[in-house]
Simulated assay, not measured.
Amino acid sequence: MPLLDEDAPLGREQLDALARPLIDRTVAACRAALAAAGVGPTHVFLVGGASRYPLVSTALHQALGIIPTAAEQPELAVAEGAVRPLPVESGAGAPTPGSPVRRRRSRRGVVLVAGLAVVAVSAGTALAFRPDGRGVAQELVAPATHAASSVATPTSTPTPTPTPSVAAGVDPCLVGRWQAVSYHQPGVNMWGTKVDLGLSGKGWFVNYLADGTGWTDYRAEGNKSGRAGGKTYRVTHKGTVTWRHKTVGDKLVITSVRNSGTTTWRVNGSVRVSAALTQDPEADPSASYRCDDDELTVVDNVNSETYRRIGLAQPPPR
Rank of each mutant, 00 (worst) to 15 (best):
V235G: 04
A220D: 13
P143M: 01
T125Q: 10
Q185N: 05
R177H: 08
P172G: 02
A210M: 02
C173V: 06
W204V: 02
L140C: 10
T216W: 10
K194H: 12
A120K: 10
A142H: 08
A220G: 02
T163R: 03
A147L: 11
G229E: 06
R134P: 01
M190Y: 04
A228K: 01
P154N: 07
R177E: 14
P162K: 00
G176P: 00
L127D: 01
V181Q: 07
R227K: 12
G187H: 13
S150H: 13
G214M: 02
P154I: 15
D171Q: 11
E221W: 07
Y208K: 06
P143D: 10
G201I: 03
V166R: 01
Y208W: 15
G187C: 09
N223P: 03
D171I: 13
A228D: 05
E221G: 00
V121R: 15
P164Q: 03
P158I: 07
P162V: 00
V195M: 02
T213S: 04
P143V: 07
V188A: 10
G187N: 09
L197V: 07
P154E: 00
N189P: 08
T157N: 06
D196A: 10
T155Y: 15
F205Y: 15
A148I: 12
A180L: 07
G201R: 03
T153C: 09
A210G: 02
V181S: 11
L209I: 08
R227E: 10
A147P: 10
G230F: 04
T232H: 10
S149V: 11
T216Y: 15
